[in-house]
């Protein structure tokens, strides 16, 4: 499932000439942490979103293939269309994938440097015991 989520996130936030993509960040580490830390409902929604992303090209770009077999240009079009699907549930589930991708990408020091922002400090996760 992590592989599927990673694929969807990379399709949503690809590398461009001006910006690093999410694949250039520590996405594997992020997803491992997310799996471990997140609320069950959150993870379930994320997994559902990634699955929907993979199986819906037939309804977005009229190609009867899972998203990971699409060429880049078609994948980009699928990504855009699935996020603006007229079916609210699909839109929301896939939105959760992109929201999570944004959390990983926007916290990356290289990405932040592109926007003249200093790197984040740590997330210690500590508390009074």
């Amino acid at each position: 499932m992590i592989w599927l989520i990673k694929f969807a996130m990379c399709a949503m936030m690809p590398r461009t000439e001006k910006l690093p993509g999410i694949g250039d960040t520590d996405l594997d580490g992020f997803l491992r942490r997310l799996r471990r830390d997140s609320d069950f409902l959150y993870w379930l929604g994320l997994a559902l979103g990634a699955w929907l992303f993979a199986v819906t090209p037939l309804f977005t770009v009229w190609v009867p293939l899972p998203a990971f077999f699409l060429p880049k240009k078609l994948l980009d079009r699928h990504t855009e269309r699935v996020l603006s699907s007229r079916i609210y549930l699909i839109r929301q589930a896939v939105f959760l994938v992109r929201l999570s991708a944004g959390m990983c990408w926007g916290a990356d020091p290289t990405v932040r440097a592109k926007f003249a922002m200093s790197p984040y400090g740590t997330d210690p996760g500590t508390f009074r015991s």
């Binding site: 399709a11 949503m12 936030m13 980009d76 990504t79 855009e80 699935v82 996020l83 603006s84 939105f95 992109r98 929201l99 999570s100 991708a101 944004g102 959390m103 990983c104 990408w105 926007g106 916290a107 990405v111 932040r112 926007f115 922002m117």
Partner: peptide, 11 residues
């Protein structure tokens, strides 16, 4: 940024 990246429309 890590919130806006998920909030802007488009993909």
């Amino acid at each position: 940024l890590d919130m806006v990246a998920g909030r802007l429309s488009g993909s």
